[in-house]
């Protein structure tokens, strides 16, 4: 075959929101600001920021399944709870496993449960089975926990101590809020980076192909069932790891983490931020916290504002906040490019 000549012509280039360099710079900036947060903000706010980090990772795990592989889990809190109750109980009953080991085991448990559910649900390649079975998982877990005295039944598993991490040369004491927050920040950043790598890798390309047209993917020689299962296992594992990070931060895990409302949180965060974008769930989690924080003094207002925002986002910008920013940017760009005289309006 003949070699390529570069002909761009009138091709529409896909323009990312920001160049990679700008995104990278922003990341460093945000990371730096968050690293300083323990010294800058009050403990209450720091607690909220920590929860947001965890919710962001949780939402990213859900969107790996939904936005990238095209499968919906309506009971993702089940996986989160597996991790939260596991590390919570291990720390509470001082089981001599290093904390990092606990997190890895938590992720492994989440992936294992996902594997079992997936083997049943995904054999038929029908997404609805998965949705139903994940909801069932959450219900069953909630029931089991409510009958387990060791897991605190309806009162929750409290008094969870924060861990110490034994490194080779010195011990990392995560007992203080400050220390654990910094650990949380690093852990969440690493998980996010790993997910970013995954969705941009050849495996991520397979996930995207499956979401867009699973049959076509099969006729490219892709084992669709296997990749769906893989995506589900990674998603469940990451959700469980988010739960594992959650328990020592709040120091109590209750049944509130194991119900359908908890399962809607990553879904809402993702829809709010934008399904089609990697960073959507993170943006959504931050937006959610901000709305909650600004409306905290008015009872019931946060629900109204969040509900209203969601309706608005879904009607006006189905692609979420990131999609909205995209539209605005394109609009501004066209204006400044000299096409402004046509009185274009935002769609």
């Amino acid at each position: 075959m003949v070699s390529m000549t570069d002909t761009q012509g009138s091709v529409i280039e896909r323009t990312p929101m920001m160049s990679r360099r700008v995104v990278g710079f922003l990341m460093v900036l945000v990371f730096g600001a968050l690293a300083l947060a323990p010294d800058l903000v009050n403990p209450g706010l720091l607690f909220l920021i920590g929860l947001t980090l965890i919710q962001a990772v949780f939402a990213l795990s859900w969107n790996l399944l939904f936005g990238y592989t095209g499968l919906a889990s309506f009971g993702h809190a089940g996986f989160f709870a597996i991790g939260a109750y596991f590390t919570g109980a291990m720390l509470r009953y001082t089981v001599p496993i290093p904390f990092l080991g606990m997190l890895v085991i938590a992720a492994g448990l989440g992936a294992l449960v996902a594997c079992l559910i997936g083997l049943v649900a995904l054999r038929r390649l029908a997404g609805i089975f998965l949705a139903v079975l994940t909801v069932a998982l959450t219900e069953v877990l909630g029931r089991l926990i409510s009958y387990s005295p060791a897991l605190g039944e309806h009162d929750g598993l409290g008094n969870i101590p924060r861990p110490k991490i034994g490194l080779v040369l010195w011990d990392l004491d995560l007992t203080s809020s400050r220390a654990y927050f910094l650990f949380l920040l690093c852990a969440c950043s690493l998980i996010t980076a790993a997910l970013w790598w995954l969705v941009h890798s050849r495996t991520g390309r397979v996930f995207q192909a499956i979401r867009q047209d699973a049959d076509r993917a099969a006729f490219l020689g892709i084992n669709v069932a296997r990749y769906r299962l893989l995506s589900f296992m990674i998603s469940g594992g990451v959700a469980a790891m988010a739960g594992g990070l959650f328990a020592p931060w709040t120091r109590i895990v209750t049944l509130d983490e194991v119900n359908w409302l908890a399962s809607t949180q990553p879904i809402l965060n993702t829809l709010l931020g934008g399904v089609g974008s990697f960073w959507g769930p993170v943006v959504g989690a931050v937006a959610f916290t901000l709305i909650n924080y600004w409306t905290r003094t008015f009872v019931g207002l946060s629900e109204i504002v969040i509900g209203g925002t969601l309706v608005l986002v879904i009607i006006a910008a189905p692609t979420g906040i990131i999609g909205l920013l995209h539209t605005i940017r394109n609009w501004v760009f066209q204006r400044t490019a000299g096409k402004g005289g046509t009185h274009e309006r935002l769609p």
Binding site: M1, T7, G9, V11, R14, R202, G204
Partner: peptide, 29 residues
């Protein structure tokens, strides 16, 4: 660990697009 497609994969893709007469559309969705 390389997330970008290998160089020879991209070249092969471009060669195929060229052979089919749609090389100029390779960046179009």
């Amino acid at each position: 660990w390389r997330w970008r497609p290998a160089r020879q994969v991209v070249e092969e893709a471009d060669a195929l697009l060229f052979a089919l007469g749609i090389a100029h559309l390779r960046h179009a969705s």
